[in-house]
């Protein structure tokens, strides 16, 4: 079964190809792109489209590769030993399974999301090389090898904060989610808000791309921000004219808080909008 755009997620053709290639060849898919362009959502959509359960592993700066496989809880075993608990004799009682193990042992093939892999230590991807390649690992404490019943579909997202090692990259398919063009964006808006007023959507997109056109912004609004903003606009039931207003006093779009997340950006945009509106009058 192939992955395709769904009613709720618009995937460009190149993304479809990348996902299908990764699924067909059973290799991990590495997804990069601006924040808010739907990297994490992709995994959810893939799991939905293929009808597989999703296992999420969110990476933090303190996450170790080992934690994805299993953890040996030595401290509680030591405590149990001091308290004379019977469980202490079986070391297997203190092996805590990680997300990768979960995905390997699942009866049904699953989608494993390794979210924001670049947050972890620089050695993290290297430590997972063999596990992702062979889809098996060895548990030293119990002297058992865990082999995947079905190779899970692995989707890895990265925000580019750290360079990933070459050996790791070589084993992945790679896709860079480009910021959607206007046409795609219209489709995305339609798919999320099928009952949005056409005029409102058009005006909102105008404003949105205008804001994105400002190069000096610290954080450019992305798809997720646009969708939040549109939702707000629809809840408030603002007429589309508000967005177009020729009134030179109104320089910021209504509810701009959803789009501009930074005080300096708001000031900058205010200033630019003010300047651009004054010029035609001269």
């Amino acid at each position: 079964m192939a992955f395709k755009s769904t009613a709720s997620y618009i995937a460009t053709r190149d993304l479809e190809v990348a996902v299908n290639a990764a699924v067909a060849l059973q290799r991990p898919l590495l997804v990069k792109g601006e924040p808010g362009t739907g990297k994490t959502v992709l995994a959810h959509e893939v799991s939905r489209a293929l009808g597989m359960p999703l296992i999420e592993w969110h990476i933090k700066s303190t996450t170790k590769a080992q934690q994805g496989l299993y953890e040996y809880d030595a401290v509680s075993r030591l405590r149990d030993g001091q308290l004379g608990d019977e469980r202490v004799h079986d070391i297997g009682n203190y092996i805590v399974r990680g997300k990768l193990w979960e995905a390997f042992e699942a009866d049904q093939q699953s989608v494993l999301l390794i979210d924001e892999i670049d947050k972890a230590d620089i050695e993290f991807p290297n430590d997972l090389l063999l596990e992702l390649d062979r889809m098996q690992f060895y548990v030293y404490e119990t002297r058992k090898t865990v082999v995947a019943k079905q190779r899970p579909i692995v989707i890895i997202t990265s925000n580019n904060e750290k360079e990933l090692p070459d050996a790791f990259l070589r084993r992945c398919f790679f896709h860079y989610i480009r910021f959607p063009d206007r046409e795609t964006m219209e489709q995305i808006v339609q798919s999320h808000f099928p009952d949005v007023k056409q005029e409102l959507a058009r005006e909102a997109l105008n404003v949105f791309f205008q804001i994105r056109g400002v190069n000096e912004l610290k954080k450019k609004p992305a798809t997720s921000e646009l969708l939040d903003w549109l939702k707000l606009l629809m809840i408030e039931d603002l007429p589309p004219e508000v967005l177009r207003s020729a009134d030179s006093k109104v320089v910021l779009p209504p509810l701009h808080g959803a789009l501009l997340k930074n005080e300096q950006d708001v000031h900058l945009f205010e200033r630019l909008a003010f300047l651009s509106r004054r010029q035609p009058q001269r």
């Binding site: 190809v17 290639a21 992945c172």
Partner: peptide
């Protein structure tokens, strides 16, 4: 048969396979 024998798909596929850094 991932790429359906179309040139555009081939471009996308080879990009996903051969390029690992934006």
């Amino acid at each position: 048969g991932v790429c359906d024998y179309s040139v555009e798909d081939f471009y996308f596929l080879s990009r996903a396979t051969l390029v690992k850094d934006e």
